[in-house]
């Protein structure tokens, strides 16, 4: 709450605020960070293993193996979300499961499941990208801006 609003409160209200603040459970930020670090790292290790798998058994190089790896990770997350397993991981690790690309798969499927009762077209179809849509839009738009900057630099900057 801003200081300005705090001044307008009566003394009893202010007393109550401090009383509540003392008893509020503190957010374990550091612990959450550690959890997110390890679980996120674990997901990335799995991703690395999948990349290595694609390099050894298929004709993908280090550069091109990234595409099927992302697709596989998203696919696995979608299945896990559907079976209700991913929610438990996410509850434990927080950002550790949301920041890697698996968070994207989770956002799509969880929205689809949530709106399943509203029908397939208006429910699932219309709301599937409610959460993940902004991610796609931001990705596409920022890629466009970066490409524009690069083009300008190469065309006129002589880079």
């Amino acid at each position: 709450m801003s200081n300005n609003r705090k001044k307008n409160l009566t003394s009893i209200q202010q007393q109550y605020q401090t009383f509540a603040k003392d008893r509020e459970k503190k957010r374990p930020v550091f612990k959450n960070c550690i959890k997110a670090f390890f679980v996120g790292g674990f997901i990335c290790t799995i991703g690395q293993a999948i990349t290595t798998f694609y390099m050894y058994f298929f004709d993908f190089t280090e550069q091109t193996a990234g595409n099927p790896t992302v697709a596989t990770l998203i696919f696995i997350t979608m299945l896990l979300t559907g079976f209700g397993v991913y929610d438990h991981f996410a509850q434990f690790a927080g950002a550790g499961t949301a920041v890697p690309v698996t968070g994207f798969g989770n956002a799509v499927i969880s929205a689809a499941i949530e709106h399943r009762t509203e029908g397939f077209v208006l429910g699932v179809g219309g709301n599937m990208f409610k959460l993940a849509g902004s991610v796609i839009l931001f990705g596409v738009f920022s890629a466009f801006v970066i490409a524009l900057i690069k083009t300008i630099l190469i065309q006129w900057g002589g880079l």
């Binding site: 290595t52 390099m55 050894y56 993908f60 190089t61 280090e62 550069q63 193996a65």
Partner: peptide, 11 residues
């Protein structure tokens, strides 16, 4: 000569 630092090429 062709030089590559890619892991796949190495394998």
């Amino acid at each position: 000569i062709e030089v590559s630092s890619d892991k796949k090429i190495f394998i």
